[in-house]
């Protein structure tokens, strides 16, 4: 097994072009598990840990550019105010050790339907910056996931960063697992209210072959809030509308029965999470 250690981003991209089969490694919290289970026998490993650019984040043009190598711990400690949804999702990841090593870029690289960053990124309409020696492109996150553990990267591309607006409103994330920590999501849900544009964003995890958006639920909720003049009045949404929102989220899911839970439970839980996260977000909105 060959082990490549580029010192710069440019070098990393060149190596990836020269050897597209090279498997990138960031925190290694997915890669090493795969090696351990003998699911992969990569000939070449491309270690991105020396590429300092990857672990930086900065504001740019009214958005935030967060390097693919920023760990969950740093999202929590440095970005909770600007990216509260992603920070909440990050808090639910693994254990302190995993949060110290694991990165959002790695989560995107693995593209597991259960990845906890995904619902938060979907709800907040993030886009993913991917690069190769040929140049860079931005992929809207809802076009990034192609199938279970498959993403839109070309063989010579690496994930450079993801882009997000500093939260234009309350954001929430909730995940159901049968243990109180260190658990892979049975299902998860991300919600973001955009107060400026008066829109709603959602993300569903672990209840379909890829992380999903609940488009109809988003539109329904945005309309219900607009129709009732709720954004201005701050009045709570009628119970029936809150429940409808939950139902629409549940309907958007495409869950299956597996060892972690049943499809029926996932749908039910998503409806509950959707209602609750909206209630918390709305409470935060009205509290000012």
């Amino acid at each position: 097994m060959e082990f490549l250690q580029p010192a710069t981003w440019r070098e990393a991209l060149e190596m990836k072009t020269a050897q597209p089969q090279a498997l990138p490694i960031a925190g290694g919290t997915d890669v090493l598990v795969d090696l351990n289970f003998d699911r992969h026998r990569p000939e070449v490993i491309l270690d991105l840990n020396r590429v300092t650019e990857l672990s930086e984040w900065q504001p740019a043009n009214g958005r935030l550019r967060v390097g693919a190598g920023v760990s969950y711990s740093r999202v929590i400690s440095e970005l909770s105010d600007r990216l509260p949804g992603l920070a909440l999702a990050s808090r639910s990841v693994g254990s302190p050790q995993i949060r110290n090593r694991g990165t959002v870029g790695g989560n995107l690289g693995s593209a597991s339907p259960a990845g906890d960053a995904h619902p938060a990124l979907l709800a907040t309409r993030a886009s993913i910056e991917v690069s190769s020696v040929r140049g860079s492109r931005e992929i809207p996150v809802d076009e990034f996931f192609l199938g279970p553990k498959r993403n839109a990267l070309k063989p010579d591309e690496l994930i450079a960063a993801f882009w997000l607006r500093p939260a234009p409103g309350p954001q929430q994330f909730a995940k159901v697992g049968t243990r109180n920590a260190m658990v892979i999501a049975v299902c998860s849900f991300g919600l973001a209210l955009d107060v400026e544009q008066q829109t709603v964003g959602t993300g569903i995890g672990s209840a379909g072959p890829i992380p999903l958006r609940a488009g109809e639920a988003e539109r329904f909720l945005a309309e219900a809030l607009a129709d009732g003049n709720h954004w201005r009045s701050g009045q709570p949404l009628p119970q029936s509308a809150r429940e409808r929102f939950g139902e629409l989220v549940a309907q958007a899911a495409r869950p299956i029965d597996d060892v972690r839970g049943t499809a029926a439970f996932r749908r039910r839980a998503l409806a509950v999470l959707a209602r609750r996260t909206f209630a918390w977000a709305w409470q935060e909105y009205t509290a000012g």
Partner: peptide
């Protein structure tokens, strides 16, 4: 959160 069902996964703030 750590004292509630679901723990840090943030599934309830007391509801249910």
């Amino acid at each position: 959160l750590r004292e509630l069902p679901g723990g840090v996964s943030n599934t309830t703030h007391g509801e249910g």
